[in-house]
Design a protein around this nucleic acid. Structure first.
Lengths: 166, 166
DNA sequence: TCCATTTAATTTGTACACGATTAATTAGTG
DNA sequence: CACTAATTAATCGTGTACAAATTAAATGGA
């Protein structure tokens, strides 16, 4: 009588009465962020492919257009990536002719990264990327604005909360 | 007189009058999502490490606790990942003793994934993970709720917008 | 029944992403 | 000035992540 029901259904197994309910995937904020981020990358891909850029490389170009030359460390701070990720990423961009890398003569530890003429030329094509993207965005302009604001505060808070793990 | 000013400053270069302004990193929704997602992963790491789970593996366990056995394809649909990502991920979880893999005898193409006793045992430790996490979240409960709602609609819309790229 | 098509998972190749370590350089202190 | 401490990239190892090609199995006609 007690062991009889243990092989009934697999769908709601072993949930003791009063036990902590296992969090559902669709109720997890982290999963919504994870999914949204991945889908945005997928949305950018066809727009960036013809430019010879991956999505992280596109972010790096945005940072460099804003401020260059930049060191690996500065790029890392701007993008939230560490040198183990950026060093090979920048080297691939260098191989693609989009940026130059050189040691800072004033401090030989630093590596200065700067767009090439070819890299600068991509600036002119950003209009199409932005337009192509905003057309595909499923939310209202005001909603996107509000979402961006909330995310910005979330990111600022998370940076503090994870600051110890560097 | 014309070529004299071309080496002035590096900070605001070559922005033709009326040209499309290069989008700023901190104004890009995609970058906010990218940063937030990465920081959430970093926030989970110390909580999941003692369980022997990476963050994507944690998501896979959530999906399996919700519904198992699941095929690779079902997990892929739930998580938004393709089989080329999931196959090795699940194999690592199998090597860690958290799940079992077996071919479906009714359809030998399918692989059924199911938590082991050890995997089921992790359920009991999810309370600590959830609590440890929500303590570190920098936003108000209501704000998080609203953010989750907006993201859910964004994800649904992006799924449609990217549905052709499968 | 046979075979073309479809489906499911795996494999291969490329590109992130991070923790931990290392190597080179610079800064600081006595 | 010597020598240690701190800083900066690069490297190594492991784990995602996806496109494209491959293999194996099931399905749907002719």
């Amino acid at each position: 009588m007690t062991t009889k029901t243990e092989t009934m259904t697999r769908q709601a197994p072993a949930q003791d009465a009063g036990a902590f309910p296992v969090p559902r995937l669709d109720q997890q904020l982290c999963f919504a962020l994870y999914s949204a981020s991945g889908l945005m990358t997928k949305l950018y891909r066809p727009l960036l492919d013809p430019l010879g850029l991956t999505y992280p490389q596109y972010l790096a170009m945005l940072a460099l257009w804003q401020h260059s030359p930049s060191t690996i460390g500065e790029l890392g701070a701007a993008l939230g990536l560490d040198s183990a990720t950026l060093t090979p990423l920048i080297k691939r961009m260098e191989a693609g002719g989009l940026v130059t890398r050189r040691r800072d003569s004033a401090d030989e530890r630093r590596v200065l990264v700067e767009p090439t003429a070819k890299g600068e030329a991509l600036r002119a094509r950003m209009k199409d990327v932005q337009e192509g993207l905003s057309c595909a965005m499923p939310l209202e302009r005001a909603e996107l604005k509000a979402l961006h604001g909330t995310l910005t505060r979330l990111v600022a808070g998370l940076r503090e909360a994870t600051a110890d793990q560097d």
